[in-house]
Each structure stands twice: as structure tokens, then as C-alpha cells.
């Protein structure tokens, strides 16, 4: 009884410590648990896999360093898949804190490919369109006149004659788009982008927001959904290039278990103390 009462008043910091250990230990000693692919991730992989070489995939990396641990692996997994299939990738962000993350992702992925003997050329295989202020206005502008909205790439190279953007005047003509979002930009791309211009759109988002996009998945406004680190990990496994997200899944597993146990034990304590208190 005393124990349960004390347990209910457990210092928050002890819980924090347990969670910290639950993250650190599996990262140091991975368990390598097997993982199932969810249908909403599989569909994104299949769609991209079915595109013809040279098709254009728009990757909007709308997040900043805060959600980077969760979303950056997702962006990289998509990039790897696209480059492997010889698709052309156009990257941009609506978040002012995002451009450096695009640079980091493109640099590291193209370095991986260079190591495998495949040199990716900026301006031909991909373009970094950088950050553009204006939010919804940028989406609508890209639908009206893409090269007018993005006259140069992030480092000032003219887009008008860039081979990667050859014959592409509107996001309407995209073969696919993946929006990786930490905030409401995903809603903007659905409402103002996909609805107006009709390109196939997949969403990647943080795990906390994933539940919000299921209605769009069901109404087929988005083709697929990558939710949080789990979504990234599944994608990494599908592409056959396991990375940081896959490694993080063990930690996530353990922390979920800790939270579940915390809830269960707290409730046992609650019921026990309630009964004794009432008796």
C-alpha cells in the first residue's frame, strides 16, 4: 500500500532517467528487431519505384533542426530511392530553418552514391531550390509559373536553362511529390497544391502528427503516409539501405514499452490506493 502510494508520487526525474536509459542502451547494443511494412509506406515505395527514369520528384523538406532527427532520415531515404531509380529530384523548403538541412542531406546522399561510383550532378540530376518565404503563395506561384517563382536555385544559379527543370513550368507536371512536414505545410500542399494542380502527393510527418493525415489518405488526396521514425525506418528497409532510422527503431520500441508499463503500473497503483482509501 505504502509502496503504491509512493509509486504514484514518483519524481518526474526518475521517469526521465528511465526513458533516457531506454533510449541509450538499445542504441549502444541494438536488438535488431524485425519490422513489418505498413501499407501506407509500401504504396509510396511502389509509386516511386514505378516511375520511369528521368521522372521528376518534388521533395519538400518543410522542417527545421528541431524535428530533424525524425524527418531527415525520411528525406534521405526518399532521395536514395530516387537517385537509385535515376529519377530527378527537386528539393525545396518553406521553412526558413530548412535550407541547411537540404544541403546536408544532398551532400551526404550524393557522397554515398559517389562512393558507389555514381556521380550525381547538381542541376542535371537534382536541384536545391532552397527556402522561399511566402508559404501558400509559393505553392500557388509554383503552380502558375515555377521558374518565375524560383528564378534561381539556392546558390544563385539560374533555373531557366537548368536541365533538371527542362520543360517543367508548373508543379502540375510533376510525376510525384513527397512532402516531409513538421507543421501545417502538409495541409497547404494538400489543399493548395494537390487540389489545384492534381499531382500525386505523399506525406511524411512527425509521429505526433501522423494520426491527423489518415482522413486524407482515405479520401485519396494523398497516396501514402510516412509517419515518424517508424515510417522512415520502413522506407529504409524497403530500399535495402538501412540507416539511422532503422537503428533508432529499437530505442523507440523500448521507450514505447516503458510508457506502456508506466501507464499500466500507475493505473494499478491508482486502483489499489483508491480501493484501500475507500475501505
Amino acid at each position: 500500500m505504502k509502496f503504491w502510494k509512493a509509486f504514484l508520487k514518483l519524481d518526474r526525474r526518475i521517469i526521465y532517467l528511465v526513458v533516457a536509459l531506454g533510449v541509450i542502451i538499445p542504441l549502444l547494443w541494438p536488438m535488431g528487431l524485425p519490422m513489418r511494412t505498413s501499407p501506407e509506406v509500401q504504396v509510396v515505395y511502389d509509386d516511386i519505384d514505378a516511375l520511369e527514369p528521368g521522372s521528376r520528384v518534388w521533395l519538400a523538406m518543410d522542417y527545421d533542426p528541431a524535428s530533424q532527427p525524425e524527418l531527415q532520415p525520411m528525406s534521405k531515404a526518399i532521395m536514395r530511392h530516387c537517385f537509385e531509380k535515376n529519377l530527378r529530384v527537386l528539393v525545396m523548403t518553406l521553412w526558413p530553418g530548412g535550407p541547411n538541412l537540404i544541403v546536408e542531406a544532398l551532400d551526404s546522399v550524393s557522397a554515398e552514391f559517389a562512393a558507389e561510383g555514381k556521380n550525381l550532378i547538381e542541376g542535371t540530376d537534382y536541384v536545391n531550390l532552397g527556402y522561399k518565404p511566402g508559404g501558400v503563395a509559393v505553392i500557388l506561384g509554383s503552380g502558375q509559373d515555377l521558374k518565375d517563382t524560383f528564378p534561381t536555385d539556392m546558390f544563385g544559379a539560374a533555373t531557366a536553362t537548368m536541365p533538371v527543370l527542362e520543360d517543367l513550368n508548373s508543379i502540375k507536371d510533376l510525376d510525384y511529390m513527397v512532402e516531409i512536414a513538421a507543421g501545417s505545410t502538409a495541409d497547404w500542399w494538400i489543399v493548395y497544391g494537390q487540389k489545384n494542380y492534381g499531382f500525386p502527393l505523399a506525406i511524411g510527418c512527425t509521429a505526433v502528427s501522423a494520426s491527423q493525415y489518415y482522413p486524407y489518405l482515405n479520401s485519396k488526396q494523398i497516396t501514402g503516409l510516412l509517419g515518424g521514425l517508424r515510417g522512415a525506418a520502413e522506407y529504409e528497409l524497403l530500399t535495402g539501405r538501412p540507416g539511422i532510422a532503422t537503428a533508432g527503431m529499437d530505442a523507440q520500441s523500448v521507450v514505447h514499452l516503458i510508457v506502456v508499463l508506466a501507464i499500466i503500473f500507475a493505473n494499478i497503483a491508482y486502483i489499489v490506493t483508491l480501493r484501500k482509501g475507500g475501505a
Binding site: 539560374a158 536553362t161 536541365p163 527542362e166
Partner: peptide
């Protein structure tokens, strides 16, 4: 045409 376009693009960037 593709090579020419690339060439024009590179020239533009060079000028910049």
C-alpha cells in the same frame, strides 16, 4: 539540345 541547354546554363552561371 540538352547539351546546348546545359552549356547555356553554365555560361550564365559563369557570368554570375
Amino acid at each position: 539540345n540538352k547539351l546546348n541547354a546545359e552549356n547555356v546554363n553554365k555560361h550564365q552561371n559563369l557570368a554570375l
